[in-house]
């Protein structure tokens, strides 16, 4: 299935819902959140939120930041 994840097209195998997607992508950030087609999904709804071809998925986490334009976090790589 083709999804738009964080603005990039990505092919994922059998991810029927958000829970399966998060597992497949191996998201390990201590805190993260997911939105599907601009709707924020609460953790308790990961299982029941079905994913469809072409869905726009946003997966975010906390980074260092102060005010506008101060968001880029140190390059760890």
């Amino acid at each position: 299935m083709r999804l738009i994840i964080n603005g990039e097209e990505k092919n994922v195998s059998s991810c029927a819902n958000v829970n399966e997607l998060v597992k497949e992508l191996d998201i390990q950030a201590p805190h993260f959140a997911v939105a599907v087609n601009l709707e924020v999904i609460s953790r308790s709804n990961y299982e029941s939120t079905r994913l469809n071809e072409g869905d726009k998925v946003e997966i975010v986490h906390a980074v260092g930041g102060g005010t506008a334009g101060e968001a880029p976090e140190p390059d760890k790589n």
Partner: peptide
């Protein structure tokens, strides 16, 4: 402390400011 919220870079380091 303030924090920003940004897209996770899927293929990058897993370290986080929250650690």
């Amino acid at each position: 402390v303030t924090l920003a919220v940004r897209r996770i870079e899927l293929d990058k380091s897993k370290d986080s400011i929250l650690n």
